[in-house]
């Protein structure tokens, strides 16, 4: 086993992990604001990638214009989803909501299949495909984009939740929606807002990975599950813990595929998920229920 090889496993794992982290944060934002696990999160990842394709190919927009348009379009989809599927519910028990998000994800996937077809599509990289060497390992410029954008988003999240009124209000809703309502916070608006933020984040994740992984109507399932896994490792925090969770997952997958057997790559992720749910449901770093943010 050479050092070069290990370094490559680590680097590959980190760049995949960053994607998981970004999707995972989307899960935890909605969970923290509403107590729902939004299983349609993966579909927004898919929508981001496919909308970018549409804006690039059909409307012939340049990349820098297509990306914001695609994020806006997916966010709109998230908003409509909350309005039509989540809000009208008479008795919003968690189990009802979870089932609705699963149903919603199937619907979104079906519509995407009708609209974009079943083919896989590729999107050009943001800045070329020439590999960059780091020691004996190589990464692509797109990986740097992924790592950079993930960091920016995590920082922006942190700022929003701790230093803005609206972010603090959303945290208040997560601790106790009734009390938050009593002090004048519009809880329903906060729920809507959480869907908007997380669908936008999912879309960003979908767009920045599409040049590497390609995109199709059904990419959301696996990416969504991996993101969920990252969020569980991070104890459903919308901050750095989920990012670390995603990175751990990515690196373990990559090391598992390289050192043990590539057949077990997905098994590794789901074994971690199950173990954590059994042994440490509060996440790897969580201590008490009330510290979850």
């Amino acid at each position: 086993m050479q050092f070069d090889q290990l370094l490559q496993y680590a680097v590959s794992g980190l760049s995949t992990g960053a994607i998981y982290a970004l999707i995972g944060i989307g899960f935890s934002i909605i969970y923290n604001a509403t107590g729902i696990i939004n299983f349609a999160q993966g579909e927004f990842v898919m929508l981001g990638g496919l909308f970018t394709l549409t804006f690039l190919d059909l409307l012939k927009l340049p990349v820098w214009a297509a990306v914001p348009c695609a994020v806006a379009a997916s966010t709109l989809a998230g908003l409509v989803f909350e309005r039509l599927a989540i809000r009208p519910l008479r008795q919003p028990t968690p189990i009802n909501l979870v089932i609705i998000t699963i149903g919603g994800s199937i619907l979104i996937r079906g519509l995407a299949m009708l609209f974009w077809g079943k083919d896989t599509h590729s999107i050009p990289s943001f800045s070329g495909d020439d590999p960059i060497a780091i020691g004996g390992a190589t990464i692509l410029p797109q990986h740097l984009w992924i790592l950079g954008i993930t960091m920016v988003i995590v920082a922006a999240n942190r700022f929003y939740f701790y230093h803005t009124i609206s972010g603090k209000a959303m945290r208040a809703c997560s601790y106790n929606p009734r009390a938050a309502g009593l002090v004048g916070i519009d809880v329903r608006r906060m729920v809507l807002f959480s869907f908007v933020i997380s669908s936008a984040m999912g879309a960003v994740a979908g767009i920045i990975v599409a040049p590497l992984t390609m995109t199709a109507y059904d990419v959301g399932i696996m990416l969504g599950l991996k993101g969920f896994c990252a969020a569980i490792i991070g104890g459903m925090s919308s901050g750095i813990a989920t990012v670390v969770g995603g990175l751990i997952l990515g690196v373990l997958e990559s090391l598992g595929a390289g050192l043990v057997s590539s057949g077990y790559k997905d098994a590794i992720a789901f074994i971690i998920l199950l173990l954590l749910l059994f042994l440490r449901p509060q996440g790897l770093f969580g201590k008490r229920e009330s510290e979850r943010v």
């Binding site: 490559q8 590959s12 760049s15 995949t16 990419v219 399932i221 696996m222 595929a257 790559k265």
Partner: peptide, 12 residues
């Protein structure tokens, strides 16, 4: 069939 990164296998 749905994997998005095979650098680990290729590195091996």
């Amino acid at each position: 069939p749905k994997d998005t990164d095979m650098t680990a296998q290729l590195t091996k």
